[in-house]
């Protein structure tokens, strides 16, 4: 019997699960290795199935999701988060540092119809995660690599060093040093293929903080390029604002108004 795999969706844009279906070769490759027992967007629906690997896209932002993730954990041997939302909270985690209730009121005529948590949090705030795939979005290559590693019992290893190394290996000219662009490469995990610098623009950190980033020193450098402190803060308070490293840097450079965070996930 082939290993059983589920792909779940929480609060997200659907972009990461496309890594399974966007590339025909990946889709056919994955389905030859495993049985996709739950993958609502592709067809099969069985959210409570027992599986060998559960891939989870999206962050936890509703009471339903808060309950659901615990059940998925119980039903899965391995739980793998795919993408920024599941792994760090994603863009919508920006609400965690704002007054979320005011934000809901600003968008909805009837916020009382909604059933939301004040925060959007990563899966690892709620259950044990076995493997995290960073990226906004993750690539088809990352998900296939993860499936193959887990099936063959290999300890997975994705890069944790900075995007700069990837960029240098590609032979790109540094956009920060030569053109003064506020490139987040020095504090960002590699894995995307240094796409932005190779397109002549500054990285905006889709892949989250690299290992031990010196965010204060880096932020000072951005100020040296002419960015105002609140602009520096916003460079950190973007897709991965909820990671400890970038949250701290964001506060340090004082960006958007900060309300003290609560680490409790429940309400």
């Amino acid at each position: 019997m082939k290993p059983r795999v589920a792909v779940h969706k929480f609060s997200s844009c659907d972009g990461c699960q496309l890594a399974f279906i966007n590339d025909g070769k990946v889709l056919l490759g994955v389905t030859s290795l495993v049985d996709l027992v739950h993958f609502a967007e592709a067809g099969p629906v069985d959210p409570y199935a027992k599986v060998d690997i559960a891939f989870v896209e999206g962050s936890v932002s509703t009471p339903h999701e808060f309950e659901m993730i615990k059940k998925i954990r119980e039903n899965s041997d391995y739980l793998v988060t795919i993408g920024a939302c599941a792994t760090s909270g994603g863009l919508q985690a920006l609400r965690n540092t704002a007054n979320a209730e005011e934000w809901f009121k600003g968008v909805y005529a009837h916020p009382e119809y909604l059933d939301n948590l004040k925060t959007a949090t990563p899966i690892s705030d709620h259950v044990t995660v076995d493997l995290e795939l960073w990226g906004c979005p993750v690539s088809p290559k990352q998900v296939v690599t993860a499936v193959r590693w887990l099936l063959s019992g290999v300890q997975p290893s994705f890069p944790h060093d900075s995007m700069c190394l990837e960029c240098k290996r590609q032979g790109n000219v540094c956009v920060l040093v030569t053109q003064g662009m506020p490139c987040m490469g020095p504090v960002t995990k590699g894995g995307c293929g240094a796409l932005c610098p190779s397109f002549g623009r500054a990285c905006y950190s889709c892949f989250g903080p690299s290992e031990n980033p010196n965010t204060t020193s880096f932020g000072n450098r951005l100020e040296g390029l002419g960015l105002m402190p609140d602009e520096v803060a916003r460079r950190f308070m973007m897709i991965h604002s909820n990671t400890p490293e970038f949250a701290k840097a964001g506060k340090h450079f004082k960006g958007i108004p900060v309300v003290e965070e609560s680490k409790e996930g429940g309400n």
């Binding site: 509703t62 919508q92 920006l94 609400r95 704002a98 979320a100 809901f104 968008v107 959007a120």
Partner: peptide, 8 residues
Amino acid sequence: PPRLFEQF
């Protein structure tokens, strides 16, 4: 779930 893009 709403993600409040217009707000942030």
